[in-house]
């Protein structure tokens, strides 16, 4: 059974790491979670991002959920936001595409142009 004592250990470990590399978020991922996104599989897209972050131990990535943004025909939609770069929006996402975006874009910094549906703000 998980207890709050486990969290204390996690906090200590994370604080040590942050001392070494600084506590900055390098990249932010926003998954569209409106009604049509959910119906098209956004929950699985979100889950795959979280799984990949945990499996690859990515400590400088933030994932959040948001409502719809008027791209219903391309759901599930995901924004990848990096400081100093234009926002990249990926559409028609699936768990497999998420894995590719994590490897290519999040880890190696190369946009997966095949999945991009919009850039900029």
């Amino acid at each position: 059974m998980k207890t709050l004592a486990d969290l204390k250990k996690i906090r200590e470990k994370a604080q040590e790491e942050m001392k070494l590399r600084g506590g900055n978020t390098r990249i932010k991922i926003v998954v569209g979670m409106g009604t049509s996104g959910i119906a098209m599989g956004a929950r699985e897209v979100m889950k795959t991002f979280l799984e990949e972050i945990a499996n690859r131990n990515l400590t400088d990535v933030l994932v959040t959920q948001t409502g719809e943004k008027g791209l219903s025909s391309m759901e599930p939609v995901v924004d990848v936001i990096e400081e100093g770069k234009p926002k990249v929006t990926y559409g028609n996402m699936t768990p497999d595409k998420v894995k590719k975006v994590v490897v290519e874009h999040v880890v190696n910094g190369r946009t997966v142009s095949d999945y991009v549906v919009a850039t900029g703000n």
Partner: peptide, 9 residues
């Protein structure tokens, strides 16, 4: 520590 920290997930 953010909730997206791998061990927290």
């Amino acid at each position: 520590i953010p909730l997206t920290y791998p061990d927290v997930i």
